[in-house]
Simulated assay, not measured.
Amino acid sequence: MDGPALAREYYRAIDDGDYEALREALAAEFVHRRPDMTLEGREEFVSFMRSDRPDTETEHSLDAVYVADGNRVAAEGRLLRTDGNVWFRFVDAFEIGERGIREVRTYTDSRGE
C-alpha cells in the first residue's frame, strides 16, 4: 500500500475495531505522539486502541489527505461522536516506512467546527 492508502486503512481499522488490520498497517517500531501522551510500539498502540481509549464509538471523518513525498502523508479531519457531533478536529502527520506506518504525530483543535 502507498502512503495515502495506509493512512486511510489506519482510520478504517480503528473505526471498525479491526485490530488485526491495524496491526498489519503499523511497523513494529511504530510511535504515536499526541498532545496528551506518547505510545511507543505497535502492540502498545493496538492495545490502547482496543481497551484504553476513552471512547471506542467514534468515527474519523477525513476532509483531506496530503502527500509530501512517498514517506510523508498528512490527514486533516474531524473525530465524530456517535451522535455525529464533532469531538475535535485533527491533523495527523504520518511517516511511512518500508514495513508500514512508523510514526503518527497528532495535532488537535478542540473547538470543533
Rank of each mutant, 00 (worst) to 15 (best):
H60I: 05
L79Y: 06
E57R: 08
V67I: 06
E59D: 09
V65Y: 01
R53K: 10
D83I: 08
G84M: 06
A75V: 01
V67H: 05
V86I: 15
R81F: 06
R78M: 10
A68M: 13
F48P: 00
N71Y: 10
N71D: 13
R53C: 13
P54A: 09
Y66M: 09
G84S: 10
G70F: 04
F48A: 06
G77A: 03
G70L: 06
D55L: 03
A68R: 15
V86Q: 03
R53D: 06
D55F: 09
N85M: 12
S47N: 10
N85P: 03
D63S: 09
D63H: 08
E59S: 09
V65A: 04
N71K: 13
G70M: 06
E76Y: 07
R50N: 05
T58I: 14
D83L: 06
D52M: 11
R72P: 00
R72S: 07
D83H: 04
G70W: 05
Y66W: 09
R50A: 09
R72H: 12
F48Q: 03
T56Q: 12
L62N: 00
G77V: 03
W87R: 14
A75D: 00
S47Q: 12
G84C: 07
M49Y: 01
D63T: 05
S61P: 01
G77W: 01
R72I: 14
N71G: 13
E57F: 01
G84V: 10
D55N: 10
V65F: 02
N85D: 14
A75Q: 00
R81N: 13
Y66P: 00
S47A: 15
N71H: 12
S51N: 15
T56V: 14
V65T: 13
D69T: 08
E59Q: 15
Y66I: 15
A64S: 12
